[in-house]
């Protein structure tokens, strides 16, 4: 099993955190993982991008040029993701912000209203966690089992009070694609 995911959104949507937490959970589940962010000279703004791979084999190139799955968190990211996702791959779209349908007909499209679901739970900032739940459910690559324990080891202690909310968001994302 190798799942290559490309993640994109605007700066501030938590693309980098999403990618890091995804591979961290993968690593805790015994997988090999790589996370390579796009890094630019911008101080703020721009599209945040992450190349993310989890695999039960040695990972060759850490660059994701033909993703099995792509996460589209905002409108500007759709053309980038649509161009590179591989045939029969999956586009996971944040339908709260992306109101158009992709042109590609040879890919699976999964729409998740991440912002709405996150706001219902209490904070739009955890829209990325909703999407992570959906990614887990759709790909099965990272199971996100024993989530509380894993999140406790990922976040510093002063952030632990936010863990229940993050778990709710992840579960909401999983349920949204049932």
């Amino acid at each position: 099993m190798t799942e290559k995911t490309f993640m994109a959104g605007f700066g501030g949507q938590g693309i980098i955190s999403l990618g890091q937490l995804w591979v961290y959970c993968g690593m805790k589940e015994g997988l090999n993982v790589t996370f390579f962010p796009y890094y630019g000279a911008e101080k703020r703004g721009g599209i945040a991008r992450a190349n993310v791979i989890v695999s039960d084999k040695e990972i060759a190139s850490p660059l994701v040029t033909k993703p099995d799955s792509a996460i589209v968190m905002n409108m500007d990211s759709l053309p980038i993701c649509e161009e590179i996702v591989k045939p029969n791959g999956t586009l996971l779209i944040n339908s709260s912000l992306v109101k158009v349908d992709p042109n590609r007909k040879d890919v699976k499209v999964v729409k998740v209203p991440c912002n709405e679901l996150a706001e219902e739970i209490g904070d739009v900032k955890i829209a990325n966690m909703v999407m992570m739940g959906a990614l887990s459910k759709v790909t099965g690559a990272v199971k996100l089992a024993k989530l509380e324990e894993v999140l406790k080891s990922f976040f510093p202690e002063n952030k632990h009070k936010y863990i229940p909310m993050n778990i709710k968001a992840i579960e909401a994302g999983m349920n949204a694609v049932k």
Partner: peptide, 10 residues
């Protein structure tokens, strides 16, 4: 190189 420096792995 910049990729090894910026990438995260186990």
């Amino acid at each position: 190189d910049g990729l090894i420096g910026q990438m995260m792995e186990g």
